[in-house]
Amino acid sequence: MKPKISIITLGVDDLDRATRFYADGLGLPRYEFEDGNISFFSLEGTWLALYPRDELARDIGLDASSPTGFSGITLAHNVASKEEVNAVLAQAVAAGATVVKPAEEVFWGGYSGYFQDPEGHYWEVAFNPYEDLT
């Protein structure tokens, strides 16, 4: 297996709302796809897909009606400075996200905060002074 993640797919309850959040709110480049039942965003090194949660569960073979909580997964977006962390968090909030952990100095020497998108997915926005992950 190659050390690469090709596509990250988020199961969403409201595809239109989620698509607007990522395309219009965060400014991710949307890939125009003829089937209107999925949204793709071309990122650097990977793709982000948004797909209706119930259909994604069905595709996997799971019961979509089972209760869900924290899935144990977060997505991370690294930036080049503390100021950029604050700017991205503000951009996410302006687009409809909720800050769940304001940006702060963290134990490993970086600076990060978390937001939750309108569909409930958690994103960390971080500045790492030791490794360029931007």
Rank of each mutant, 00 (worst) to 15 (best):
G36M: 06
D16V: 08
L43M: 05
G61L: 09
L50W: 04
S66Q: 08
A76F: 14
A49I: 13
E32F: 06
A57K: 00
L56H: 00
R53M: 10
S71G: 15
E44P: 15
G96K: 02
G69R: 01
R17D: 02
N86W: 13
N37S: 14
I38F: 12
S81R: 04
A87Q: 02
R20G: 01
G96N: 05
G36T: 05
T19K: 00
L26M: 10
T19I: 09
R58F: 11
Q91D: 06
A49Q: 09
L50G: 05
G45Q: 03
R17I: 09
L50M: 12
V93K: 00
L89E: 06
P29L: 12
A92G: 06
S71K: 02
D54R: 03
T98K: 02
L50A: 09
G72S: 13
T74M: 15
R58D: 10
L43G: 07
A76L: 14
E44R: 07
F33W: 12
R58I: 15
E83N: 05
P67E: 10
A57E: 01
Q91H: 03
I38W: 15
V88S: 01
T74F: 15
F41C: 13
D16Y: 13
V99Q: 00
T46D: 05
A87N: 07
T98N: 14
I60P: 09
F40R: 00
G25M: 02
L62H: 00
A94I: 03
Y31V: 08
E84H: 10
G27I: 11
L89D: 02
L75R: 06
S39A: 10
F40Q: 01
P29G: 10
P29E: 00
F40L: 13
R53C: 12
G45H: 08
T74K: 11
A90H: 05
F70Y: 13
L48E: 03
P67R: 08
S66I: 07
T74L: 11
S65V: 04
V100L: 02
Y22E: 08
L75K: 04
L75H: 08
Y31N: 03
S65A: 02
G36I: 13
S66T: 06
T68K: 04
N78T: 11
A76E: 07
W47D: 07
V100R: 04
Y31M: 06
W47F: 13
P29S: 13
G25W: 01
A94W: 10
D35H: 08
D24T: 05
R20K: 01
W47H: 06
H77Y: 11
H77M: 09
S71Q: 06
L26H: 03
R53Q: 03
Y51C: 07
L48S: 03
A64L: 03
G27P: 15
G69C: 05
E32S: 06
E83I: 15
A95I: 00
L26D: 03
A87F: 04
R17M: 15
T46S: 04
P52T: 03
N78S: 06
E44N: 12
T46Q: 12
T68C: 08
D35L: 12
N78W: 14
G61M: 05
